[in-house]
Design a protein around this nucleic acid. Structure first.
Lengths: 154, 154
DNA sequence: CCGTATCCTAAAGGATACTG
DNA sequence: CAGTATCCTTTAGGATACGG
């Protein structure tokens, strides 16, 4: 792993004695860069769930619809099409009637799922810490409002 | 009830000889569960960028605004407040005039960044594969439209 | 300098109805 | 069964103006 290659943003950077080993701007969140797109794909409302389910076993459309209870037909179709386009999911149409369509994770999809899982694991490991942080923040906020209200009342 | 509450989705599961080691439904994407919230936080338009920048060194409001060129004041404030509330970023107000406010990643924020980074690394490693998949998909789509158009014209 | 408040637009996504 | 097509609501987020 190289230290910053295209350093960009003329920042002195290393001042904190700590540094990212990639260039932040290479995956600038606003651009249509790959990371942004993958992140959007992974993070959208239903993709992650579909990926996780398909990582267990392949499923057909209706099965997915039933398992991801609450998703609309429209969104399930869109989600699956996006995943398919990105090469994460494979769609197999069986020429029978009534139609049967199977969805399965590709090898690429499986490696992505493995990666996402580390984020899930992180969250599970730290959820209490986060909950505490939120409670503290909200408490401080409430105290602040109370104080300023009291101050205004004086 | 569907079979299986925690083990859930009555899937014999292992059929593919492969299985996730967590319960998909514990982090059901639709609920206000922790994973969903963290994922939303991480994936929203600006958070990731802010986190990555702050992982290098602490920055003040205006510096962040300048570095994340394109972000509105409104969204920068909101983004930072959310990160602060979750205990990922620490906000330090210096009681001077004009005001000076420094933002820094907390230890928790740093570990999150490290985790996110693995997703970034995954994306960088597979972006060409994804690009190919998309090109293939679009090609097939185009061919299909062409064919059906020709068929209709006949 | 560091915000908050207000207004406004674009996009995501649900509900519903229809089709091969 | 496995989708499209259409309409409608909700939300994210930009622009702008103002305040401590």
């Amino acid at each position: 792993m190289e230290e910053g290659t295209s350093q960009s943003l003329g920042s002195p950077a290393d001042t904190a004695g700590h540094r990212s080993d990639y260039d932040v701007w290479q995956w600038d969140a606003r651009e249509d860069c790959e990371v942004r797109q993958i992140l959007d794909r992974v993070a959208d409302k239903w993709s992650l769930l579909a990926i996780a389910l398909l990582d267990r076993r392949s499923l057909r459309f209706t099965e997915l619809k039933r398992e991801i209870d609450g998703i609309s037909q429209r969104m399930l179709t869109r989600t699956l099409r996006h995943l398919e386009r990105d090469g994460l999911v494979e769609r197999t149409v069986h020429p029978v009637v009534p139609p049967r369509v199977d969805y399965a994770l590709t090898p690429l999809g499986r490696t992505l799922h493995a990666t996402i899982k580390s984020l899930v694991v992180w969250t599970e490991a730290h959820q209490e810490e986060i909950a505490r942080a939120r409670a503290d923040y909200d408490k401080r906020e409430a105290d602040l409002r109370e104080t300023s209200a009291a101050g205004a009342a004086d």
